[in-house]
Design a protein around this nucleic acid. Structure first.
Lengths: 146, 146
DNA sequence: TCAGATAGGGATAAATTTATCCCTATTGAA
DNA sequence: TTCAATAGGGATAAATTTATCCCTATCTGA
């Protein structure tokens, strides 16, 4: 297992939550478990983009951070079920809000992300202002007040 | 600049928002800009844990994702001010919710994260259940109904 | 008897993100 | 005249996260 070499920053709430939620699939795992997909194999089917391995690893981290719990049925073939702890439950509304924002801006985000093509060297719409407060780079305003 | 070698997953809102908010300091940058710390040097002072370089890089990404805009004053010494676009503004409540959750669970999170010491090999409180539904690993219940 | 489902983890490579160091430029203050 | 402040970016190293591959075990069904 990987052992961290630097100490985490723990200044504010954002740092803290980052420590437990930073991980490509963690929010999705919590979300799906909450929706009732509790067995590892079900989760893997819901998240085909992730390898079996990573999901195991991230589930384990969620468990060690007490966001999820795990019930092991000693049967064969093996059966395991994850569930959200109360602590994990309390995160669902937050994850909901995040996902909602993403969904609400789906089209725009998709475009922005895919536009990640090699730059043409143009400025991204930065505004340059002279001493008089006139914008040099923004057509709408540059023609105003002249 | 780094060029990505794999295509991003863009399935759900969580993927989408991840693409623009994943980055150790991005939420903090947005938050502080919203609070009125708009110049790079001010932001650097607010986030001493981050190097000057990363902040520049992440600000640039936020800009290319249209969450922040930038005004360049052609003076010397240089002066630059970032501001939130409407798009960026709309993220503030979400970031607020995230930070709030982190703050609300400050003590517990801090403990959990710091407890990241080399494992003793013990299970993390997993429950093992036999065919009759009895818990083998949980003292509270193991003595119940016997 | 062999493939597939189930759950999990080790070893290692590849991808990605952050950190470090150094360089450019200009003005005002010590 | 030298230093600090201001903003930004290249090159490269280090840290961290994900992906790949392979192995263990057992029961069911073809």
């Amino acid at each position: 297992m990987y052992e961290r070499k630097t100490l985490p920053d723990l200044n504010c709430g954002l740092d803290l939550i980052g420590e437990i939620l930073y991980g490509k699939w963690k929010m999705r795992l919590l979300w799906f478990i909450n929706e009732g997909f509790q067995r590892p194999s079900e989760l893997q089917r819901k998240i085909p983009g992730a390898s079996r391995r990573v999901l195991n690893v991230q589930l384990k981290e969620l468990e060690s951070h007490e966001l999820v719990g795990k019930v092991i049925y000693p049967v064969v073939p093996p059966k395991v079920e994850y569930y959200l702890t109360d602590f994990g439950q309390s995160l669902i509304p937050v994850i909901g809000a995040i996902g909602q924002w993403g969904d609400a801006h789906d089209q725009r985000l998709r475009t922005l992300i895919l536009k990640e093509t090699p730059h043409t060297g143009s400025t991204n719409g930065e505004k340059i202002v002279d001493q008089d407060g006139h914008f040099t780079d923004n057509p709408d305003r540059a023609t105003t007040g002249r």
